[in-house]
Amino acid sequence: MRATLTYWKYELIRTLRDRRFFLLTLGMPVIFYFVFINQQGGALRIAGTFWSHYFMVSMASFGVVGSSINTLGVRLAAERQSGWVRYLRTTPLSSFGYAIAKILTQLTLSLLIILCIFLVAHFSQNVSLSGGEWLTITLWLWIGSLPFAALGVFIGLTGNAAQPLGTLMYLVASMLGGLWTPIQALPSVMQTIAKWTPTYHYAHPAWRILAGQSIQASDILVLLGWTLLFLIGSVALQRRIDTKVQM
Protein backbone atom coordinates (compact mmCIF):
# COMPACT_ATOMS: atom_id res chain seq x y z
CA MET A 1 0.00 0.00 0.00
CA ARG A 2 2.79 2.40 0.99
CA ALA A 3 4.60 1.69 -2.27
CA THR A 4 1.42 2.14 -4.34
CA LEU A 5 0.58 5.50 -2.76
CA THR A 6 4.17 6.69 -3.21
CA TYR A 7 4.16 5.73 -6.87
CA TRP A 8 0.79 7.46 -7.38
CA LYS A 9 2.17 10.67 -5.88
CA TYR A 10 5.24 10.70 -8.15
CA GLU A 11 3.14 9.83 -11.22
CA LEU A 12 1.07 12.97 -10.56
CA ILE A 13 4.19 15.11 -10.04
CA ARG A 14 5.51 13.86 -13.38
CA THR A 15 2.24 14.64 -15.15
CA LEU A 16 2.07 18.17 -13.73
CA ARG A 17 5.51 18.79 -15.30
CA ASP A 18 4.44 17.36 -18.64
CA ARG A 19 3.94 20.14 -21.21
CA ARG A 20 2.48 17.67 -23.65
CA PHE A 21 -0.29 16.87 -21.18
CA PHE A 22 -1.28 20.53 -20.76
CA LEU A 23 -0.90 21.58 -24.39
CA LEU A 24 -2.51 18.57 -26.06
CA THR A 25 -4.52 16.41 -23.70
CA LEU A 26 -6.04 19.27 -21.71
CA GLY A 27 -5.44 22.16 -24.12
CA MET A 28 -7.06 20.67 -27.22
CA PRO A 29 -10.55 20.12 -25.79
CA VAL A 30 -10.52 23.59 -24.21
CA ILE A 31 -9.54 25.27 -27.49
CA PHE A 32 -12.03 23.15 -29.48
CA TYR A 33 -14.73 24.18 -27.02
CA PHE A 34 -14.17 27.88 -27.69
CA VAL A 35 -13.89 27.43 -31.46
CA PHE A 36 -16.95 25.24 -31.98
CA ILE A 37 -19.17 27.19 -29.58
CA ASN A 38 -18.39 30.43 -31.37
CA GLN A 39 -19.14 28.87 -34.76
CA GLN A 40 -22.64 27.70 -33.85
CA GLY A 41 -23.57 29.91 -30.92
CA GLY A 42 -24.00 28.30 -27.52
CA ALA A 43 -27.78 28.83 -27.43
CA LEU A 44 -28.45 26.41 -30.33
CA ARG A 45 -30.88 23.65 -29.26
CA ILE A 46 -29.67 20.07 -29.61
CA ALA A 47 -30.92 16.74 -28.18
CA GLY A 48 -33.12 18.42 -25.58
CA THR A 49 -30.39 20.76 -24.33
CA PHE A 50 -28.20 23.69 -25.47
CA TRP A 51 -25.13 23.40 -27.70
CA SER A 52 -22.95 24.99 -24.99
CA HIS A 53 -24.01 22.22 -22.58
CA TYR A 54 -23.93 19.40 -25.11
CA PHE A 55 -20.47 20.27 -26.39
CA MET A 56 -19.13 20.67 -22.84
CA VAL A 57 -19.85 16.96 -22.32
CA SER A 58 -18.34 16.15 -25.75
CA MET A 59 -15.09 17.92 -24.92
CA ALA A 60 -14.85 16.51 -21.38
CA SER A 61 -15.20 13.03 -22.92
CA PHE A 62 -12.65 13.88 -25.62
CA GLY A 63 -10.18 15.01 -22.93
CA VAL A 64 -10.63 11.91 -20.79
CA VAL A 65 -10.24 9.55 -23.78
CA GLY A 66 -7.10 11.47 -24.76
CA SER A 67 -5.47 11.20 -21.38
CA SER A 68 -6.27 7.48 -21.10
CA ILE A 69 -4.63 6.80 -24.42
CA ASN A 70 -1.80 9.35 -24.45
CA THR A 71 -0.87 9.65 -20.81
CA LEU A 72 -1.62 6.13 -19.60
CA GLY A 73 -1.07 4.10 -22.79
CA VAL A 74 1.95 5.78 -24.33
CA ARG A 75 3.66 6.25 -20.97
CA LEU A 76 3.08 2.62 -20.06
CA ALA A 77 4.67 1.55 -23.33
CA ALA A 78 7.69 3.78 -22.68
CA GLU A 79 8.12 2.48 -19.12
CA ARG A 80 7.98 -1.10 -20.30
CA GLN A 81 10.50 -0.54 -23.07
CA SER A 82 12.98 1.32 -20.89
CA GLY A 83 13.18 -1.66 -18.50
CA TRP A 84 11.65 0.46 -15.75
CA VAL A 85 8.61 -1.79 -15.20
CA ARG A 86 10.87 -4.80 -14.90
CA TYR A 87 13.09 -2.95 -12.43
CA LEU A 88 10.09 -1.94 -10.31
CA ARG A 89 9.15 -5.61 -10.03
CA THR A 90 12.27 -6.16 -7.91
CA THR A 91 11.02 -3.59 -5.36
CA PRO A 92 8.19 -4.01 -2.82
CA LEU A 93 5.90 -2.37 -5.40
CA SER A 94 4.18 -5.46 -6.85
CA SER A 95 2.79 -5.68 -10.40
CA PHE A 96 -0.65 -5.36 -8.83
CA GLY A 97 0.39 -2.29 -6.82
CA TYR A 98 1.84 -0.74 -9.98
CA ALA A 99 -1.44 -1.34 -11.85
CA ILE A 100 -3.45 0.19 -9.00
CA ALA A 101 -1.16 3.24 -8.90
CA LYS A 102 -1.63 3.68 -12.67
CA ILE A 103 -5.43 3.45 -12.35
CA LEU A 104 -5.47 5.93 -9.43
CA THR A 105 -3.34 8.31 -11.50
CA GLN A 106 -5.66 7.97 -14.47
CA LEU A 107 -8.76 8.56 -12.33
CA THR A 108 -7.17 11.67 -10.79
CA LEU A 109 -6.28 13.06 -14.22
CA SER A 110 -9.74 12.27 -15.62
CA LEU A 111 -11.36 14.13 -12.75
CA LEU A 112 -9.01 17.08 -13.29
CA ILE A 113 -9.87 17.23 -17.00
CA ILE A 114 -13.63 16.93 -16.42
CA LEU A 115 -13.60 19.69 -13.80
CA CYS A 116 -11.44 21.96 -15.99
CA ILE A 117 -13.79 21.70 -18.97
CA PHE A 118 -16.82 22.21 -16.73
CA LEU A 119 -15.27 25.33 -15.21
CA VAL A 120 -14.39 26.71 -18.64
CA ALA A 121 -17.97 26.10 -19.88
CA HIS A 122 -19.49 27.54 -16.73
CA PHE A 123 -17.48 30.74 -16.78
CA SER A 124 -17.30 31.33 -20.54
CA GLN A 125 -20.80 30.23 -21.61
CA ASN A 126 -22.69 30.54 -18.31
CA VAL A 127 -23.47 26.83 -18.41
CA SER A 128 -25.36 26.15 -15.22
CA LEU A 129 -26.91 22.95 -13.98
CA SER A 130 -28.46 21.87 -10.69
CA GLY A 131 -26.09 20.50 -8.06
CA GLY A 132 -27.50 17.00 -8.62
CA GLU A 133 -26.95 17.22 -12.39
CA TRP A 134 -23.36 18.44 -12.05
CA LEU A 135 -22.69 15.61 -9.62
CA THR A 136 -24.25 12.80 -11.71
CA ILE A 137 -22.59 13.94 -14.93
CA THR A 138 -19.21 14.25 -13.21
CA LEU A 139 -19.54 10.84 -11.58
CA TRP A 140 -20.64 9.19 -14.81
CA LEU A 141 -17.83 10.68 -16.88
CA TRP A 142 -15.39 9.79 -14.12
CA ILE A 143 -16.36 6.14 -13.52
CA GLY A 144 -17.33 5.61 -17.17
CA SER A 145 -13.72 6.40 -18.12
CA LEU A 146 -12.53 2.98 -16.90
CA PRO A 147 -13.05 1.23 -20.29
CA PHE A 148 -10.62 3.76 -21.77
CA ALA A 149 -8.12 2.97 -19.04
CA ALA A 150 -8.38 -0.64 -20.25
CA LEU A 151 -7.80 0.63 -23.81
CA GLY A 152 -4.77 2.57 -22.51
CA VAL A 153 -3.34 -0.63 -21.01
CA PHE A 154 -3.89 -2.46 -24.32
CA ILE A 155 -2.09 0.30 -26.21
CA GLY A 156 0.66 0.30 -23.59
CA LEU A 157 1.42 -3.32 -24.50
CA THR A 158 1.93 -2.65 -28.20
CA GLY A 159 5.53 -1.42 -27.74
CA ASN A 160 6.80 0.70 -30.63
CA ALA A 161 3.34 0.88 -32.15
CA ALA A 162 1.89 2.59 -29.05
CA GLN A 163 2.47 6.19 -30.14
CA PRO A 164 1.03 5.98 -33.69
CA LEU A 165 -1.71 3.50 -32.73
CA GLY A 166 -2.66 5.65 -29.72
CA THR A 167 -2.93 8.85 -31.74
CA LEU A 168 -4.97 7.07 -34.42
CA MET A 169 -7.40 5.52 -31.90
CA TYR A 170 -7.71 8.83 -30.06
CA LEU A 171 -8.68 10.81 -33.14
CA VAL A 172 -10.72 8.16 -34.97
CA ALA A 173 -12.71 7.06 -31.92
CA SER A 174 -13.44 10.68 -30.97
CA MET A 175 -14.56 11.56 -34.49
CA LEU A 176 -16.64 8.42 -35.13
CA GLY A 177 -18.22 8.56 -31.67
CA GLY A 178 -19.60 12.03 -32.36
CA LEU A 179 -17.45 13.91 -29.88
CA TRP A 180 -16.45 16.51 -32.49
CA THR A 181 -19.57 16.70 -34.66
CA PRO A 182 -22.81 15.48 -33.07
CA ILE A 183 -24.00 12.31 -34.80
CA GLN A 184 -27.35 13.99 -35.47
CA ALA A 185 -25.52 16.10 -38.05
CA LEU A 186 -23.88 13.09 -39.74
CA PRO A 187 -25.16 10.86 -42.58
CA SER A 188 -27.07 7.77 -41.41
CA VAL A 189 -24.19 5.39 -42.20
CA MET A 190 -21.99 7.35 -39.83
CA GLN A 191 -24.74 7.32 -37.22
CA THR A 192 -24.92 3.54 -37.40
CA ILE A 193 -21.13 3.28 -37.02
CA ALA A 194 -21.17 5.74 -34.11
CA LYS A 195 -23.56 3.49 -32.20
CA TRP A 196 -20.88 0.80 -32.07
CA THR A 197 -18.11 3.02 -30.68
CA PRO A 198 -17.22 3.14 -26.99
CA THR A 199 -16.81 6.91 -27.20
CA TYR A 200 -20.43 7.44 -28.21
CA HIS A 201 -21.74 5.24 -25.41
CA TYR A 202 -19.48 7.03 -22.97
CA ALA A 203 -20.78 10.54 -23.79
CA HIS A 204 -24.39 9.51 -24.54
CA PRO A 205 -25.56 9.01 -20.91
CA ALA A 206 -24.14 12.41 -19.96
CA TRP A 207 -25.96 14.07 -22.90
CA ARG A 208 -29.15 12.35 -21.69
CA ILE A 209 -28.68 13.69 -18.16
CA LEU A 210 -28.46 17.22 -19.66
CA ALA A 211 -31.86 16.61 -21.33
CA GLY A 212 -33.32 15.47 -18.00
CA GLN A 213 -33.28 11.79 -18.98
CA SER A 214 -31.78 8.83 -17.16
CA ILE A 215 -28.79 6.58 -17.95
CA GLN A 216 -29.72 3.62 -20.19
CA ALA A 217 -28.59 0.05 -19.53
CA SER A 218 -27.69 -0.35 -23.22
CA ASP A 219 -24.90 2.26 -22.90
CA ILE A 220 -23.46 0.47 -19.88
CA LEU A 221 -23.65 -2.91 -21.65
CA VAL A 222 -21.81 -1.70 -24.75
CA LEU A 223 -19.11 -0.11 -22.57
CA LEU A 224 -18.73 -3.33 -20.57
CA GLY A 225 -18.43 -5.23 -23.85
CA TRP A 226 -15.61 -2.95 -25.03
CA THR A 227 -13.89 -3.17 -21.63
CA LEU A 228 -13.95 -6.95 -21.84
CA LEU A 229 -12.56 -6.82 -25.39
CA PHE A 230 -9.70 -4.48 -24.36
CA LEU A 231 -8.87 -6.67 -21.37
CA ILE A 232 -8.89 -9.88 -23.44
CA GLY A 233 -6.70 -8.10 -26.00
CA SER A 234 -4.30 -7.01 -23.24
CA VAL A 235 -4.03 -10.51 -21.79
CA ALA A 236 -3.41 -11.96 -25.26
CA LEU A 237 -0.68 -9.39 -25.96
CA GLN A 238 0.93 -10.02 -22.57
CA ARG A 239 0.98 -13.78 -23.26
CA ARG A 240 2.66 -13.20 -26.59
CA ILE A 241 5.26 -10.94 -24.97
CA ASP A 242 5.91 -13.49 -22.18
CA THR A 243 6.62 -16.31 -24.60
CA LYS A 244 8.75 -14.14 -26.89
CA VAL A 245 10.95 -12.49 -24.26
CA GLN A 246 14.37 -14.08 -24.02
CA MET A 247 16.62 -13.01 -21.24
Binding site: Y10, I13, R14, A78, S82, G83, W84, Y87, T90, P92
Partner: peptide, 18 residues
Protein backbone atom coordinates in the same frame (compact mmCIF):
# COMPACT_ATOMS: atom_id res chain seq x y z
CA UNK B 1 11.13 -10.53 0.45
CA UNK B 2 11.68 -7.58 -1.90
CA UNK B 3 11.71 -5.26 1.11
CA UNK B 4 15.02 -6.81 2.12
CA UNK B 5 16.84 -6.70 -1.20
CA UNK B 6 18.34 -3.97 -3.37
CA UNK B 7 18.92 -4.48 -7.06
CA UNK B 8 20.90 -2.99 -9.94
CA UNK B 9 19.84 -4.33 -13.32
CA UNK B 10 21.31 -3.67 -16.74
CA UNK B 11 19.63 -1.54 -19.38
CA UNK B 12 17.20 0.32 -17.17
CA UNK B 13 16.46 3.98 -17.71
CA UNK B 14 14.58 5.99 -15.11
CA UNK B 15 11.33 7.80 -15.94
CA UNK B 16 11.40 11.42 -17.15
CA UNK B 17 10.57 14.65 -15.28
CA UNK B 18 11.88 13.65 -11.84
Amino acid sequence: SHERIGVMLQEVSVPPRL
